[in-house]
Simulated assay, not measured.
Amino acid sequence: MRPRLVFVHGVGGPRDATAELAAWTDALASGMRKAGHCDVAAALSDGTVDRAFVHYGDLFRPAQAQGGAVEIQDDASAEILLELLDEMLAGLSDPLPEAPTAEQDRYRAKILAHARAQTAPRPQEQGAMAAVRRALDVATTVLSAPLFRGLGQWAAPKLMVRDLGQVARYLARRESDGTGRALDVGIRGRVARELALGATVLVAHSLGTVVSWETLHERPSPVRLLVTLGSPLGMRTVVWPRLVPRPPCTPEQVGAWLNFFDPDDPVAVRPRLEDDFGPNSARIRPESRRVDSVGLWVHPAVLYLAQPGVAGPVAEALRTALAGER
């Protein structure tokens, strides 16, 4: 059986799975070449390594939804969304090296304090839509402040709330995927189908790291290397307490787990997962490694994949599997 590389995406709008697979593969191959693994980079494109891209974004989009719509309907998801925003803002509270003056630091602290205050309940407003309005107010506050341009993938508050709302909707575990199953169950089912076909290396990004971690526990599958990129798994207020199963630990059949984070990634709050995840029976724990990308918005998967520090270990795992094939 050929070595198999499986990608799992995170939040966002509609995706072309074929185009995404090509883009993620190209970025990873670029990183491999930078790391000196040109032979494995070539194997990605010539079919020697089987590749798959797990797509589940369509499950978040009810048929009647319009592009960019905020699709939260239940109170539980709305409250999780506000908690998520608050924890992200708390993670942004450290002074930035590019904001060296005391005046800029005071301005930054003032904006953050105002934004976090906006997450608080308003006695005169109840229900999911009121909570979504508060979330939109928070997003408007931070996206309009120049010192938070690092959140710039979200060109509008509505897009920021929509994307973060997907995390909330998954963790709420109350919504249907349109087929009678719970939304989170349907999403994990997409990942489980690919894992059933085998995965030498599983690379997951953002919300996809939560989905993949839970799927590997729910339906154990042998994975030589699990790679998590820009993961919110360590968010102690929102994500970590809601993970299933508990207490959180490395999935049983994972042979190694590398977790990569960029310190400027607003989604990777509390990125050192070894502090919060126990070992499996083989004593495998997550190993967190820092990368540094160039640009204002460092969360995209392709930026992580193009890093030689990320692509190198993936190449080494695939090379070992290729050697075993021979």
Rank of each mutant, 00 (worst) to 15 (best):
L243K: 09
S206C: 12
S206G: 06
G255H: 05
G150C: 05
I111C: 04
P100N: 14
R149P: 00
F277L: 15
L171E: 13
D74V: 07
A113E: 13
S176C: 11
G127R: 01
Q64N: 08
F53A: 12
T25Q: 07
A23V: 07
G178A: 11
R219C: 04
L112E: 04
G57D: 08
R190I: 07
A113P: 08
A115P: 15
R319I: 00
A42V: 06
R219M: 02
L164N: 01
A204I: 03
A301K: 03
D184Q: 07
Q126T: 14
P286I: 02
A156M: 02
A306M: 02
A19E: 08
A99Q: 11
D50V: 00
L233M: 11
Y304A: 08
A182H: 12
E83L: 14
A268M: 10
V239F: 01
H55Y: 03
M1W: 00
A78R: 11
Q166P: 15
M88W: 07
P121W: 06
L96F: 13
A17G: 07
T200Y: 09
P3F: 12
L112C: 07
W213Q: 12
R289G: 12
R134P: 06
H217V: 15
E83P: 00
Q253T: 06
V191S: 09
V70Q: 12
E71Y: 00
Q66T: 15
A120D: 04
